[in-house]
C-alpha cells in the first residue's frame, strides 16, 4: 500500500493539535530561533521585525525575505511558521514553496486586500488566522484556517486585549451551546458566520479547530492566565526577545504554559527573570493592529 494523501483537513488541523500546550515564539534571527528551541518552544515564527519594532518603525510590513526564513529553517528542527499579509495569496504561495510548516495570515503585517482574506482551502500548507470575536474566527475557518489565535494587541506587552478577545470568543461559544436550533440561524446572521459552522460550535461546545492566544503575553503569569481562560497554547512575540534576559524568560513561559493550573510551579518559574518588555497602554496607541481584518 503506497498511496498517500497530503493536505487533508485532518493533517492540517492535526499539526495544530500537536502544538497544543506549547509556546510558539517570534524570532528574527537563527540565533534567536536556537534560543527558542533550547527553551522548549514547540515552533518558531520567522519574521524580520517583531511586532513592537513594526509598531515603532511604521511603514509597510511585508512577508520576510525567503533567505531569512531559510536561515531559520536551517537553524532549528522544530516547526517553522511565517507570516503573509492579509489577502496576499502570492506571498502565501511563496511561503508554501519554501516549505514553512504553518502560514500566519497576520494583521501584524500591512493588509494587502481590504475585502478578502486568502482562500486557504487552495493550499497544502495549513494557515493560522487571528480573530477578535467568534464571528471573525468562524469566517476564517470557513475560508480554510486550521488554527485560530485570539489577536490581542501585538507588540504592546499588554495582555488586556488578548483577554478581551479570548473572553469574547469563548463566551459566545458558551452561549451558542445554550441556543435552540432556531436561534442558531439568528446567531449565524448576527455573527456573520456560516450557519453550518455555528451549528458545529453549538454541538461541540468549542471551535472546530484549536484556539491559541497571541498578542501581549510577556510573563509566565500571562501565559497561565490565558491558558486558564481556555486558550490551548500561546504565541509570544515581542515578549521574549524584547525582555532583559530572553532565554530564562522563554523557558519559564514554556513551563508556565504546561503547568498553567498549578500556581506553585508558575510562582517558582516566575522568580528573578529580570525586567519584562516595556508595556504600552492600549488607548495611547496610534495603530490598533487587531482592527485589521474583518
Amino acid at each position: 500500500m503506497s498511496e498517500r494523501t497530503t493536505g487533508t483537513a485532518r493533517v492540517k488541523r492535526g499539526l495544530a493539535e500537536m502544538l497544543r500546550g506549547g509556546v510558539i515564539m517570534d524570532v528574527v534571527t537563527p540565533e534567536q530561533a536556537k534560543i527558542a528551541e533550547d527553551a522548549g518552544a514547540t515552533a518558531v515564527m520567522a519574521l524580520e521585525r517583531v511586532p513592537s519594532d513594526i509598531r515603532r518603525d511604521g511603514g509597510v510590513a511585508r512577508m520576510s525575505d525567503p533567505a531569512m526564513v531559510e536561515g531559520i529553517q536551517a537553524a532549528v528542527t522544530i516547526p517553522v511558521m511565517a507570516k503573509c499579509r492579509i489577502g496576499h495569496f502570492a506571498e502565501a504561495q511563496i511561503l508554501q514553496a519554501l516549505g514553512v510548516d504553518y502560514i500566519d495570515e497576520s494583521e501584524v503585517l500591512t493588509p494587502a486586500d481590504e475585502a478578502y482574506h486568502v482562500d486557504k482551502w487552495n493550499f497544502t500548507v495549513p494557515f493560522v488566522c487571528g480573530a477578535t470575536n467568534l464571528g471573525e474566527a468562524l469566517r476564517r475557518i470557513g475560508e480554510g484556517a486550521c488554527l485560530i489565535r485570539s489577536k490581542g494587541e501585538a507588540g504592546t506587552g499588554n495582555i488586556v486585549e488578548a483577554v478581551r478577545h479570548l473572553r469574547s470568543i469563548l463566551g459566545d461559544v458558551r452561549k451558542l451551546t445554550q441556543a435552540d436550533s432556531a436561534e442558531l440561524y439568528g446567531w449565524a446572521k448576527e455573527l456573520r458566520a456560516p450557519v453550518d459552522l455555528v451549528q458545529e460550535v453549538a454541538e461541540r461546545g468549542e471551535l472546530p479547530v484549536p484556539l491559541f492566544c497571541a498578542g501581549g503575553i510577556a510573563t509566565p503569569a500571562d501565559a497561565a492566565l490565558v491558558m486558564q481562560l481556555g486558550a490551548q497554547a500561546v504565541f509570544v512575540g515581542s515578549g521574549i526577545f524584547k525582555s532583559e534576559d530572553p532565554a530564562p524568560r522563554a523557558k519559564a513561559i514554556v513551563e508556565a504554559t504546561t503547568h498553567y493550573a498549578d500556581a506553585e510551579i508558575v510562582m517558582k518559574v516566575s522568580r528573578s527573570l529580570g525586567t519584562p518588555m516595556v508595556g504600552q497602554e492600549i488607548d495611547k496607541l496610534d495603530v490598533k493592529l487587531s482592527e485589521r481584518g474583518w
Binding site: 500500500m1 498511496e3 498517500r4 494523501t5 497530503t6 493536505g7 487533508t8 485532518r10 493533517v11 492540517k12 492535526g14 499539526l15 516547526p79 508554501q96 516549505g99 514553512v100 510548516d101 504553518y102 497544502t124 500548507v125 495549513p126
Partner: peptide
Amino acid sequence: RQVMSFEAPL
C-alpha cells in the same frame, strides 16, 4: 516537513 504530511490506509 508539514506540506509532506499525509494520510494513508494501513
